[in-house]
Simulated assay, not measured.
Amino acid sequence: MRLIHRIAATLGGAALTLSAWAQTTLPGPVVSTQWLADNLANVQVIEIRNDPKSFTSEPEVVTTKDGKKQLEEFGGHIPGSRLFVAKELRTQREINGNKVSYMLPERAAFEKVMQAVGVLADKPIVLVPEGQKIADYNDAARLYILLKSYADTPVAMLEGGMVAWLLEGRPWSKEAPATLASTWRATADRLARYVADSPDVAAAMEKKDVQLVDPRATAMYLGIFKRDYVYAYGHIPGARNVPLDTLYVTRGGVIRLLKPEVYRAVFQAQGVDPTKPLITYCNSGNDSSLPWFIASEILGNAQARNYDGSLHQWTLEKRAMNAPVPAAM
């Protein structure tokens, strides 16, 4: 009889927990540190790190002479969060005889990674970038694309990232994540809805019915210099330049995203209509992930996609490029 009572109590507790998850509605694609602190028990936090050692190292926050908090050493994590190592966002694939690097993992491979991380099915997810540089937000947006493509679990991104959390004096841990039995499964396959390929981009270039958005530094867009894994200078003909440094501000040592109306104005000022079909691209598909997130999720453009292979694949395939300025020698 006691055993029955214990089982009933356990099941009752699980039901209450599931009910709490079900009642937790993410306020949008971006959540604040205060919202996360208030709802921490009812969401699962996934932190994206380039250096997994930072997850279990101790952060150091100091107070400057003028009374401001300053992060001297990055480390630690939000208590109970799960660790996702950023390198799992990129893999190599063979496409039409070319070995294309930096590609998103395919469905089955991504499912294995998420299960190893210990992600649960159905419980809302908040993605936490490191927040030390804008590339961290691109990593989080790239993982967001995968979650939107392969599952129906509600997902949002933490504005300000882990840096904001630490500078606000919120609780952190350096304990290694406990091993959890994952219930997460890749139950959908909507990759083509969010991700464009080379033929999509070629059609957009030729028909001019889909806008091409290039968020790289203007010097790369113009053809002054390039990355070594991109094999031609300049940009895809017809693309508009919306540099990443126009899409955020830094306040008090924290990278902050902008308001929707500011993003609309930035896109429009650069000749892009954020309400019409568009494809973002960069050198490898990573730096264009946040601009996609802004267009698709913050501005609600359901016709926004990110070109996964980007210029690495495009130039491997020897497709057309426009370089209006001679390369620096």
Score class of each variant (00 low, 15 high):
residue 5 H to R: 13
residue 286 N to S: 05
residue 160 G to Q: 05
residue 255 I to K: 12
residue 255 I to R: 11
residue 51 D to I: 03
residue 234 G to Q: 05
residue 93 R to N: 03
residue 249 V to A: 14
residue 177 P to H: 06
residue 108 A to M: 10
residue 233 Y to M: 12
residue 165 W to I: 07
residue 58 E to W: 04
residue 81 S to I: 08
residue 147 L to W: 00
residue 291 P to A: 01
residue 164 A to V: 05
residue 152 D to K: 09
residue 145 I to C: 09
residue 8 A to S: 12
residue 118 G to E: 10
residue 123 K to V: 12
residue 293 F to L: 12
residue 110 F to I: 13
residue 70 Q to E: 14
residue 49 R to C: 01
residue 37 A to G: 09
residue 49 R to Q: 06
residue 174 K to Y: 06
residue 68 K to R: 14
residue 36 L to H: 05
residue 18 L to S: 02
residue 263 Y to R: 11
residue 217 A to Y: 09
residue 227 R to A: 10
residue 136 D to I: 00
residue 27 P to M: 04
residue 102 Y to I: 07
residue 111 E to M: 04
residue 211 Q to T: 02
residue 229 Y to W: 14
residue 228 D to V: 06
residue 279 I to Y: 15
residue 218 T to G: 08
residue 211 Q to A: 00
residue 180 L to P: 01
residue 202 A to D: 04
residue 64 T to D: 10
residue 50 N to L: 08
residue 306 N to E: 14
residue 172 W to A: 14
residue 84 F to E: 05
residue 85 V to T: 14
residue 147 L to C: 01
residue 102 Y to M: 14
residue 123 K to G: 00
residue 305 R to I: 07
residue 196 A to Q: 06
residue 109 A to D: 15
residue 84 F to D: 03
residue 86 A to W: 00
residue 230 V to Y: 03
residue 176 A to M: 02
residue 28 G to S: 06
residue 128 V to E: 15
residue 52 P to N: 10
residue 205 M to A: 10
residue 136 D to H: 15
residue 205 M to S: 02
residue 31 V to M: 09
residue 324 P to F: 07
residue 150 Y to K: 10
residue 322 N to D: 14
residue 25 T to Y: 02
residue 42 N to E: 13
residue 310 S to W: 13
residue 77 H to M: 05
residue 259 K to W: 03
residue 23 Q to F: 06
residue 106 E to W: 06
residue 20 A to N: 09
residue 6 R to W: 13
residue 157 M to G: 02
residue 311 L to E: 00
residue 235 H to S: 04
residue 296 S to H: 15
residue 154 P to G: 07
residue 112 K to D: 11
residue 114 M to K: 06
residue 128 V to H: 13
residue 39 N to P: 05
residue 140 A to C: 04
residue 106 E to C: 02
residue 153 T to L: 05
residue 298 I to W: 10
residue 176 A to Y: 05
residue 89 L to Y: 02
residue 259 K to M: 11
residue 224 I to F: 07
residue 284 S to C: 03
residue 51 D to W: 02
residue 17 T to R: 12
residue 172 W to M: 10
residue 277 P to L: 04
residue 61 V to G: 03
residue 297 E to K: 12
residue 55 F to V: 07
residue 140 A to W: 04
residue 202 A to W: 06
residue 180 L to F: 07
residue 143 L to K: 11
residue 221 Y to I: 06
residue 253 G to Q: 01
residue 264 R to F: 00
residue 159 E to Y: 01
residue 329 M to T: 07
residue 98 N to K: 13
residue 174 K to G: 08
residue 272 V to M: 11
residue 252 G to C: 07
residue 141 A to V: 11
residue 145 I to Y: 08
residue 14 A to M: 13
residue 13 G to S: 09
residue 177 P to V: 12
residue 198 S to D: 08
residue 19 S to T: 15
residue 309 G to L: 11
residue 231 Y to D: 07
residue 286 N to A: 05
residue 155 V to L: 05
residue 67 G to S: 09
residue 278 L to V: 09
residue 131 G to C: 12
residue 173 S to K: 13
residue 183 T to D: 04
residue 80 G to I: 13
residue 248 Y to L: 12
residue 246 T to N: 05
residue 89 L to C: 00
residue 325 V to F: 13
residue 95 I to L: 13
residue 257 L to H: 07
residue 53 K to T: 11
residue 214 D to T: 03
residue 132 Q to C: 02
residue 234 G to N: 08
residue 79 P to F: 03
residue 167 L to H: 00
residue 62 V to G: 00
residue 299 L to F: 03
residue 306 N to F: 06
residue 41 A to R: 07
